[in-house]
Design a protein around this nucleic acid. Structure first.
Length: 205
DNA sequence: ATTTGGATCGGT
DNA sequence: CCGATCCAAATT
């Protein structure tokens, strides 16, 4: 099946955010740029469900930075964190519902030369930066697609709390991080979480 | 106009 | 644990 048939349509993103987050595991993120075609298998994501979710950037209302989160699903939300790293999200749910899923780790599939086991690292490796903020993920630059059948591996879906959101009170306890427990490419903290899970202290919720 | 602190990462 | 590094957003 040609690549275009495997590209996720907007209807994929226009659904309940936790469902989208879970189903993104195992799919391929593709970026075509002057650096060529780069592909990574998504192995870790986090759901952000503003404005109620105090961990979400959109919890503080519509601002210049979060404008894209309030727009149509199936677009990229890219922001700079700690003055150093870009982070890539996909906007989900209905237009006007400011939800997004943060892509936290990839397994290299094609054209990737640097490490991708963290949200900042994967953006650096795939040359994703704020110039791509607002990019339509149904277009021909940046998108997510089903792998070819021969390349697809079923993820072992595991859940845990989100990273770096301790300021968000009760929302910090939501198990809205999803990762492939079979993948050695999850971010460092998820590796620790997986170890805990395997030892029998699963996160609940 | 100034301050604050962050959806990270790598080194110690 | 801690510093890097800069910008969006809140505050004055």
């Amino acid at each position: 099946m040609p690549t275009s048939r495997r590209k996720l349509p907007r209807s994929f993103y226009a659904r309940e955010t936790l469902t989208v987050a879970r189903e993104l595991l195992g799919l391929h993120l593709v970026h075509k740029s002057i650096h060529g075609r780069q592909v990574g298998r998504i192995v870790e994501v986090e759901a952000y469900q503003g404005p109620q979710d105090l961990a979400a950037h959109s919890a503080r209302g519509r601002t210049q930075r979060t404008e894209v989160m309030f727009g149509a699903p199936g677009h990229a939300y890219v922001y700079l964190i700690y003055g150093v790293w870009d982070c890539l999200n996909v906007v989900t749910a209905a237009h006007g519902t400011p939800h997004a899923v943060l892509v936290r780790a990839l397994e290299p599939v094609e054209g990737i030369e640097n490490t991708t086991h963290g949200p900042g690292l994967l953006c650096r490796a795939l040359h994703v930066n704020r110039s791509l903020n607002g990019t339509d993920l149904t277009g021909n630059s940046l998108w997510i697609e089903m792998p070819a059948p021969a390349a697809y591996r079923q993820p072992k879906v595991q859940r845990a709390t989100r990273i770096g959101v301790d300021y968000a009170g009760a929302w910090a306890k939501k198990p809205w991080r999803f990762f492939d427990g079979n993948s050695p490419y999850v971010s460092t903290v998820s590796t620790a979480a997986r170890r805990r899970a395997l030892q029998g202290s699963p996160v609940t919720g």
